[in-house]
């Protein structure tokens, strides 16, 4: 009868949002578990290597940009720029004095001149550092073919 009268039946449109909170909480749990504080945020193009070992947590970071600007962090606070090679030696000596087995991570741009890396390595040797990691990205077969 209603059809005959020409009345259209109303369809209510709604989005089901009850599960939204569950999804959001799952996402939060994911981020909380995977979140780690990055002490050094210097933007560098890392070299690519096949051999890669995991860097220990709380390692000290020394970053070197393409232009040779050096920033250091003991792994607890954000990285700070250093002005001279002597400052790198002082920084590394202080870190080693506090924690003798502390690992040092060198995060250098692949296009930087080796002399900048050499100076940092020399400073770490003078400070009697024991383990050094040269940060890199994973090399793939495509990189080899290029």
């Amino acid at each position: 009868m209603s059809l005959l009268r020409g009345r259209a039946r109303k369809v209510e449109a709604s989005i089901f949002t009850a599960s939204m909170a569950d999804i959001v909480f799952l996402l939060i749990v994911f981020f909380v578990l995977t979140y780690n504080v990055q002490v050094d945020r210097t933007q560098v193009n890392l070299p690519k290597t096949w051999v890669r070992k995991t860097v220990p947590k709380n390692a000290a970071y020394i970053s070197i940009t393409k232009d040779g600007v050096i920033r250091v962090s003991s792994g607890k606070e954000m990285s700070l720029p250093v002005g001279s090679d002597e400052e790198v030696v002082t920084f590394a000596s202080n870190v080693v004095a506090e924690t003798p087995n502390k690992a040092f991570v060198i995060k250098a741009d692949k296009d930087t001149k080796y002399e900048h890396v050499d100076k940092v390595l020399d400073a770490l040797k003078q400070a009697k550092a024991r383990v050094i990691y040269l940060l890199s990205e994973q090399k793939t077969q495509d990189d080899t073919n290029q």
Partner: peptide, 14 residues
């Protein structure tokens, strides 16, 4: 605030 950072590299002991 989260950044996907590289946490691997070549190691060598002095």
């Amino acid at each position: 605030t989260s950044v996907f950072s590289a946490t691997r590299g070549l190691d060598f002991a002095l």
